Computed example of a mutant assay.
Amino acid sequence: MAGGQAMTARRIDARARFLPVGDTAFAVEFGDRIDPAINALVHRTAALLAEARPEGLVETVPSFRSLLVHYDPLRTSAQALQAFIGALELEDEAGQAPPRIWRIPVLYGGEAGPDLTEVAAATGLSAAEVIALHAGTLYRVYVQGFLPGFAYLGDLPEALDLPRRTSPRVRVPPGSVAIAQRMSGIYPVESPGGWHLIGNTPLRFFDPARTPPTLFTPGDGVRFVPVGADEHAAIREDVAQGRFVPDVEGAPA
């Protein structure tokens, strides 16, 4: 319990609404905005369903504020599954620390972060202030998507809130650390992209030979740690040789 405060549990049907999505799925919607407390309810519901495995459940797909529930209509009905889900109880997890916090080394600016100077100019900050703000924030892994291993990390400080680039890049190098609107993200592989590139990390965020294949899990915390060019190169070599173990903080008691 965060701060030693007791948490109250309420039924899901008192917290959410059910919305039909075709004839084999429905959404459990917990809110209408991107919010860490709402997102925590989404992922806790997914975890409870994974544990309970109710009859007819096929899979769940979490988003920022809702959970998509796929079911087999030959084994259950939307009404029956919604009744089961609605009776589940969720504790209010607002203020809870992430179960684990990844410390991600980042080389900011220069070739590693070609948009840092533009971001500084657009926000009225110095490059050093942009780095300090970005690296001084504890981010939450809201969801993963767009690319395997691409995590949407929030919430970016308001002072760094910028729209996407007007001209997306055709190629964004893997490991590029980027920002757009109130999100930060890391491109796991080379791909097109329209976010502002402010740095690069040598870590790998998707490996099909690894279990699980993605480094992050929704609900994790992420901190970015500025490093110099030499340290960045050394970590890249260690990653290539399989010697590097990412630094992970446990949740505070």
Score class of each variant (00 low, 15 high):
residue 105 P to D: 10
residue 233 A to G: 06
residue 76 T to F: 02
residue 71 Y to R: 03
residue 62 P to M: 11
residue 47 A to N: 05
residue 88 L to S: 06
residue 119 V to I: 14
residue 169 R to F: 00
residue 10 R to Q: 15
residue 235 I to E: 03
residue 217 T to H: 15
residue 30 F to N: 07
residue 45 T to P: 04
residue 158 E to L: 12
residue 181 Q to Y: 11
residue 202 P to H: 02
residue 56 G to Y: 05
residue 203 L to N: 02
residue 134 H to V: 01
residue 72 D to F: 07
residue 43 H to E: 02
residue 186 I to M: 12
residue 26 F to P: 03
residue 203 L to W: 01
residue 44 R to E: 15
residue 209 A to T: 15
residue 108 Y to S: 00
residue 23 D to H: 09
residue 106 V to N: 02
residue 120 A to V: 08
residue 176 S to W: 03
residue 155 D to I: 03
residue 101 I to S: 10
residue 227 V to S: 08
residue 9 A to N: 02
residue 67 L to A: 05
residue 99 P to C: 06
residue 130 V to C: 05
residue 215 L to V: 09
residue 212 P to V: 08
residue 95 G to V: 12
residue 21 V to Q: 13
residue 156 L to A: 12
residue 79 Q to V: 09
residue 115 D to Q: 04
residue 164 R to A: 04
residue 199 G to V: 11
residue 145 G to I: 10
residue 208 P to Q: 10
residue 33 R to I: 12
residue 1 M to C: 04
residue 164 R to M: 02
residue 50 A to G: 15
residue 31 G to T: 02
residue 250 G to R: 13
residue 194 G to H: 10
residue 225 V to C: 13
residue 15 R to L: 13
residue 93 E to N: 09
residue 8 T to I: 03
residue 140 R to D: 14
residue 168 P to L: 10
residue 60 T to P: 11
residue 187 Y to V: 00
residue 80 A to P: 07
residue 173 P to T: 05
residue 153 L to Y: 04
residue 245 V to A: 15
residue 234 A to L: 08
residue 190 E to D: 15
residue 123 T to V: 01
residue 118 E to D: 15
residue 228 G to H: 12
residue 78 A to C: 06
residue 213 P to E: 13
residue 99 P to N: 06
residue 75 R to N: 07
residue 236 R to Y: 05
residue 78 A to K: 12
residue 185 G to T: 00
residue 39 N to L: 02
residue 83 A to Y: 02
residue 218 P to Q: 06
residue 129 E to S: 06
residue 153 L to W: 04
residue 237 E to K: 13
residue 210 R to W: 10
residue 44 R to G: 07
residue 150 F to Y: 14
residue 200 N to M: 13
residue 246 P to S: 07
residue 140 R to L: 12
residue 41 L to A: 15
residue 36 P to S: 14
residue 70 H to T: 08
residue 127 A to V: 06
residue 60 T to I: 08
residue 109 G to H: 02
residue 46 A to V: 10
residue 170 V to Y: 08
residue 139 Y to L: 05
residue 51 E to C: 00
residue 54 P to N: 04
residue 80 A to K: 11
residue 252 P to D: 04
residue 128 A to W: 10
residue 202 P to M: 07
residue 92 D to K: 06
residue 56 G to E: 14
residue 89 E to K: 01
residue 161 D to R: 13
residue 106 V to W: 03
residue 208 P to C: 07
residue 87 A to E: 15
residue 52 A to I: 00
residue 13 D to N: 14
residue 108 Y to I: 01
residue 213 P to H: 10
residue 98 P to L: 09
residue 197 L to Q: 12
residue 87 A to W: 00
